[in-house]
Design a binder for these strands. Structure first.
Lengths: 249, 249
DNA sequence: ACCTGAACACCGTTCAAGT
DNA sequence: ACCTGAACACCGTTCAAGT
């Protein structure tokens, strides 16, 4: 038994030494391909992600990727899944059980928000790709996280239908706030390859004509302020208050 | 003056009679191209919208479209703009001025919701495409509608920053709820061209393993229930209550 | 003025072939 | 076992040319 295992290991090691791999390259794997896909979109934006381009960024031809990924659509799904699964590697360490369901939802909200701000260009995928079941609601779109969610709430006083209603309300809340936040934060990070058709020095800043839109013109400084943090906290607090009214069913 | 106008009109009419057009086809125009683009996505889904396919559905080669539309990206932007502008053709007729800002927001919320349910496959574009200014927040993404919004609220007791905060909260609310609603409603309407790789009779329904996910398994009937209408109304009511607390600034 | 044929660069994807 | 060359079908887009 032990000998067999050693032999197999030795053989693996041997064949690994035999194969000549370009020096700077790691051995390919699904995780590596998916991880590089996420990093690629983080750097260059979603439209830039092509099978050929991703292959090149891994030092390989595009066709090699098809051994680890079932086409481009499967790659995108895997990228989303990879990010959403990450929500579990950080178990609720900082969370006291005494905090109750409010503490759990606070932790979860900020965990998902961290995902959105870390990957503003990938988050639209998390938000809009069809989940694997129709009753899964982005961005809480994995079976595991739904199970956690329902467990956390039902074990802390929620009735069945109240827990499900909370899942729905919480998903909508996260989706709306984080998608808008990711969009505005991601817009500044794009390589900006679209605004170069105009020959003259056109100003890219959209100016508001005060005759047509007097209020918008006057309030533009307010509209341009970045209040994402406090908006999120206030809206979250309000949602928790609303949920509190339906705890017992 | 009047004669000149008549002459021009006559000339236009003349050239129109000269040109021989395939019998069943309307004369092309930007509005026609954009409108057909929306109808095409409604029928076949977003991935099916190609310049060649859209041209064919208009009885024309793809290259003809470039006379009316500045490429595919411009077409998508125009489709979004077309739908959002429609929110103004329906001025607040059914709305009594006595209803106050709550009445306006109720009307606007249902108008945008109608847009989402009428075009579930296009709404993701309304939700995720970059607006023309960074401080415009989907789905309330036109200058005109923002002006209306701010006018409606500031003329009904809102301070400047309260009106802007309301715009932000309202956008997030609409985006989260309507994007999820459009996704679940649109998923059933797709031609479904992706699930046909498996050779055997694989069941497309995702089954929940009760050992791994006991709660999700038990609550699956609740999770699958369609509660979109009442969820939307309740969440909207709650948002209006929240806004009420910050009317005076 | 309005539409098209032909062409270009670039996709995703398959498969037989290399090592 | 793992990667690639060659090929295919299909994109978006341009432009000279037709009517």
């Amino acid at each position: 038994m032990r000998n067999d295992e050693s032999e197999v290991a030795a053989t693996r090691e041997g064949s690994r030494l035999e194969q000549e791999r370009p020096p700077g390259r790691q051995p390919l794997s699904r995780d590596l391909v998916v991880g590089r896909g996420i990093a690629f979109v983080d750097e260059h934006g979603l439209p830039a992600l092509t099978m050929r381009g991703l292959g090149q960024s891994l030092g390989v031809e595009a066709m090699s990727l098809y051994r680890y990924v079932n086409g481009r659509e499967d790659l995108l799904d895997a990228m989303v899944e990879h990010l959403v699964d990450r929500l579990h590697l950080d178990p609720a360490d900082e969370m006291q059980p005494a905090d109750g369901w409010q503490g759990y939802l606070q932790w979860l909200a900020h965990a998902v928000r961290g995902l959105a701000t870390d990957h503003p260009h990938v988050f639209p995928l998390v938000a809009t790709r069809h989940p694997s079941a129709p009753w899964l609601r982005p961005p809480l779109r994995s079976l595991k996280i739904v199970e956690d969610f329902l467990q956390a709430l039902t074990s802390r006083g929620f009735g069945d239908s109240a827990a499900v209603a909370a899942y729905r309300a919480f998903s909508s809340f996260l989706l709306g706030h984080l998608l808008l936040e990711a969009a505005s934060h991601g817009a500044s990070t794009v390589p900006a390859e679209e605004v170069l058709d105009e020959g003259d020095a056109e100003v890219p800043v959209t100016e508001v004509d005060p005759d047509d839109f007097p209020l918008t013109g006057r309030l533009r400084p307010l509209l341009s302020e970045d209040r994402d943090d406090e908006e999120f906290e206030i809206a979250l607090e309000s949602l928790l208050n609303r949920l509190e009214e339906m705890v017992g069913h």
